[in-house]
Design a protein around this nucleic acid. Sequence first.
RNA 1: GGCCCCAUCGUCUAGUGGUUAGGACGCGUGGUUUUCAUCCACGUAACACCGGUUCGACUCCGGUUGGGGCCGCCA
Length: 524
Amino acid sequence: MTSDNTKKISGVRTRFAPSPTGPLNPGGVRTALFAYLFAKKYGGSLVLRIEDTDVERSKKEWEQDLFESMKWMGLLWDEGPDPDDPSKYIGQYGPYRQSERKDIYAGYLKKLIDEKKAYYCFCSKEELEAYKQYAMSQGLPPVYPGKCRDMDQATIQKYLDEKRPFLIRFKTPKGQKIIFDDAVRGKVEFDSTLLGDFSLSKGFDNPLYNFVVVVDDYEMKITDVVRGEDHISNTPKQILLQEALGFSKVRYAHLPLILNEKKQKLSKRDNVLPISAYKKDGYSPEALNNFVALLGWNPGTDEEIFSLEQLAKEFSVEKIQKGGAVFNPQKLDWINGFYIRQRSLKELADLCLPYLQEKGMIKKNEKMIRPENELLPENSYSVIATGEIISQSRLEGMLALYKERIKKLSEMADLVDFFFAGELSYPKETLKWKNMESDQEAIDSLNKVYNLLSSLEEKDFTKIKLEPILLKEAETMPDRGYILWPLRVALTGKMNSAGPIDITAAMGKEKTLIRIKEAINKFK
RNA sequence: GGCCCCAUCGUCUAGUGGUUAGGACGCGUGGUUUUCAUCCACGUAACACCGGUUCGACUCCGGUUGGGGCCGCCA
């Protein structure tokens, strides 16, 4: 019922307003995602605003990281810097970089001072810090004591003429109850007295957070603020400012925090990676969005897999949790593995290729022509260690065997490395199946398989053809391991791998026979 | 210390006065299998506590405890 009402609200405008002081992390993405979903759900738009008023801490590189990560995640904004060329803007209300809007802020500051709703403060940092310590020790609210609140005009002018540094403070009304209705939490109440005369700006050209947020949300016609719960105690300050400036009200939805394993607010100290690192590790944006959406929100059904489009459809503020949610990397891995298993072989190959190339295993051939000028029917790759040429479908066949075995793409390379290696090195004892009593049994097994396979043609190296042949042979032994285990180790050099018959098919006749020969030779 | 917020399995959560408290991840066991995974089946495990309201509380109210957030010339 509530969601129906909300749906009717026209012109919903929400915003994501990060400060570029570090790489975008899962916490930031969660805020961005929810703001995005809120906008999409109610047919509104998402504004991206870079809160870079702190020149010391704000860096272009983090802004760039933010654009790239958001784009990669598919969280595209409707207004703000152009993701493809951040020096340009999209949407009709730009630009949205606070560092480029100082004139606007200065105008509102002057207005507040003229109307005696704000005042100059010339107190020193040391003075203020000392008072704060004292106040805390006395159990008093650690807020500005108001020394400069009623300074006479002559003194103000004198200090200004002396070019003393100053702060502009808001003249917070005392004893006022500030009540707002949070979409997540319901009614929230604060006492204005406890807020103190908070600061709006350093001089006229270094405006501060609480002030610029209010100005920008108004100027950008924001209707709904979706942000982390860590901002809830800023909300009464911002409401007071809206009232002082005669701005319209905005609605608030404060999201529960994402917590570390110790149940504290996620921070850089925790082993949570920036989005760019998850990307590098081989997590997909779909999995990340899906996982992060489920942190503090649920669809009300048992369903857990959602695309961004489905999320935008299903999303509702009523279903947002009140308590914080612990970031659980195991569940992320599970979801990521799930998405990998959904991929087509072509997609999987495209996705894994960069990892294989990075490890120096293969390279993609530019020309679709073999050295002897034979045209290839499709893409081809060169195996760097051996110079072999393999086709797209062969590569896909190899990767397919490990699709079910990885949770992230970066794990693929180490699993399939044997396909792209020269002679394998492993202790010959591993060729011996656990039930075998002597080396000779392993040698016999390998010889048998060698003979069987060498009588076949390359085109018979498919699972369908190979399986009956090899299994028939295996049935003559005490158990299948007598045939299959030595073959596995000969082909992969590993104790754990995909099925040996699958590998034989994926590897092809030539290389398979070479590997078996090499294995037998280890005993000579 | 002050203010604000929160409270169901280890974790993410369903649940809106009467349920064997459900699902998912993880973990364990079994099945499939030559191995590792996948897959399937089964299992493990929770209403923080104390009062009240009520015929009846996980659910409503109060308190306690616990956890968290914020208290910047950061955002």
